[in-house]
Design a protein around this nucleic acid. Structure first.
Lengths: 233, 233
DNA sequence: TATAGCCAAAGGTGTCATGTTTGCACCATC
DNA sequence: GATGGTGCAAACATGACACCTTTGGCTATA
């Protein structure tokens, strides 16, 4: 049994990974038909592995398989755009900018609601940690320790989502992290955090500690408006 | 070769369907270990089919497979709670109420943002159809044609999401449909639509037609506040 | 005697090759 | 146009290894 054939052998994950990327990127356009056979050839794997890879792509809606036809690549409207894998592929594709903007809008929508929920449901511990993080952000922002600042920022927003006591909000933690860390690359963040933003973060934390959902929402609105305006252009 | 064994044979989809339900419902609690062999036994299928089913559950994060151990069921925090299949399973589980509330909160969050986007991006046609639907809703609401009213309501909200020009918002169309049609079962809807709600729907449609994002947001806020208060208790 | 460390066997998934069945698109024929 | 045959490609089945990792027993040592 040949341990290595002429074709580069490649693991199961790598196959769905590669194909996922290609579909999301548009290299494989909707309507394109593949066959298991062609995948076996291309990646030098057995039918089992090819089938496995197809299964995961299918469960993400990137293609569907049809007897007598093959594997049909589908368009955006059928994709599971919330699946972490799909998000990652979109962000690595030529449509990264669009994906990033959409994710940012989603973040804005969810966080605005999450703060209000958090104000009602937060634990004592969560309230304290939010205040701490907001304080850290001010300190790190003023001394321009950007790396550390971003870490605190991410922690703050993740905690916010967790405190919202909604598993669907919480599931977006990765998205928020991605958006916050990606802002720099997309030129959507001032190199130095604006004082208003720092105030607003503290305001949000305080409102949540005070269990005042309306105030929390107002403070978050300030934060978010900044992002919205950065999004225009 | 036995065409029919003693065990009831069952298709691939039905297996992941059944297991998905059981995991989400809690009948199979996190940490539970299954084996491919046990699935083959239970459903009377070959290893190929068992593996296929496991692949889709795995891609939704409901379990993971580990050599020498088996198939380990995971907890909520690992599930793809945005996957349509998972949403459906949750809504059919004993935790339906929680799931429903979480989905409603998500809908509120996204729609509030979507209207503003829609006001900026809507096409002429979309604007007209929104106005039409709002008018229909008033008519059907006042004559208490509940069935038809709900259909128009769903169409209105789906169109709203589509007009937001964000594929992640648009992907939530099914969720919104589910939430709107499910409201009745969960006692979250007045049998007769409130006049304020009808006004607000018209207000939203008009604001979008006028390309006034702030007004659209304000009107949607009215709609949404009603739902929020229904959610308390 | 108790404990730490090591090794070998067992038991599970991962992968492969091959064969059989089934649905269905296409085409020739009526 | 209906309609039936034909071949294609996926769906499903089976059996055989390869490979990893857990477990438990064995041995050496304190």
């Amino acid at each position: 049994m040949p341990k290595n054939s002429a074709v580069a052998r490649v693991g199961r994950d790598a196959i769905s990974e590669t194909l996922g990327r290609e579909i999301v990127d548009g290299a494989l356009s909707p309507g394109t038909v593949l066959t298991l056979e062609s995948l076996q050839q291309r990646f030098g794997v057995s039918r089992t592995v090819a089938r496995d890879s197809v299964k995961v792509l299918e469960s993400h809606g990137l293609l569907y398989s049809k007897r007598r036809v093959g594997l049909v690549v589908t368009g955006t409207e059928h994709w599971s755009v919330f699946a972490p894998a799909v998000i990652a592929w979109r962000l690595a594709s030529r449509h990264a900018r669009t994906a990033f903007i959409e994710l940012t809008q989603l973040r804005i929508a969810v966080e605005t609601e999450a703060v209000a929920m958090a104000a009602l449901r937060r634990t004592e511990d969560q309230a304290r940690r939010l205040l701490d993080l907001a304080a850290s952000m001010r300190r790190l922002g003023e001394t321009e320790e950007v790396e550390e600042f971003m870490r605190a920022d991410v922690a703050f927003h993740r905690l916010l989502l967790a405190a919202g006591a909604n598993s669907m909000f919480a599931a977006l933690a990765e998205v928020v992290t991605e958006v916050l860390t990606g802002r720099a690359q997309h030129g959507l963040m001032p190199t130095r955090p604006m004082p208003e933003a720092l105030d607003a973060h503290e305001g949000v934390a305080r409102a949540i500690a005070d269990q005042d959902p309306e105030a929390a929402r107002r403070q978050m609105e300030i934060l978010v408006d900044e992002v919205r305006s950065a999004l225009e252009q």
